[in-house]
Amino acid sequence: MSRYGPRADRWVATHWPAIRARGRWRFVLLRGLALWGGLMFLGMAALVAFRLGLQHPRLPLVLALALPLCLFGGLVWGLLTWFFNERIFRALPTAKNNP
């Protein structure tokens, strides 16, 4: 059994120092904007295209609106995830020994 309680604490204790060392903006841009926002856009685009059909005249408009909204959501997700992981990391007993 690990020294840490909840699963999130164990994950942050083992993985977060390496992710943290690469920097906040790399995390936010790659994991938030590109990964989360990009995958959300692709999923929404597939669902909308399936629902409306590829020949629907408003499909480009819907996709043009979805892209910035999904990317903004990914940016917010990345920033919030960074913030909460930092809080967990700083609360861990080993983080007090390794600033």
Score class of each variant (00 low, 15 high):
R24Y: 01
W36Y: 13
L92H: 07
M44A: 15
Y4C: 09
R20I: 10
W25H: 07
P60S: 08
G53S: 07
R26E: 15
F72G: 06
L54N: 13
F41A: 07
L75C: 11
W36S: 01
R51M: 13
V12L: 05
W11M: 11
T94H: 10
P99S: 11
L54C: 06
T14Q: 09
N97H: 11
L71G: 09
G78V: 04
G53N: 05
H15Q: 10
R22D: 14
P60A: 09
L47H: 02
V12F: 03
T81D: 01
F72P: 00
L29G: 10
G5E: 11
L80A: 14
L63K: 00
V62R: 01
P60Y: 00
L33T: 02
F84R: 06
A49E: 13
R3Y: 13
V62T: 04
I19G: 01
W82M: 01
T14P: 04
L92Y: 10
G73Y: 04
T14F: 10
Q55V: 14
F84Y: 11
A66C: 08
A64D: 12
F27E: 01
H56L: 06
Q55I: 05
L39Y: 12
W16C: 12
F89D: 00
F84K: 08
G5Y: 07
R20A: 05
R26D: 11
W25P: 00
L35H: 06
F89I: 05
M40G: 03
W36F: 08
A21Q: 00
A95V: 06
V76D: 09
R31A: 02
I88L: 12
R7S: 13
V48N: 05
R58G: 09
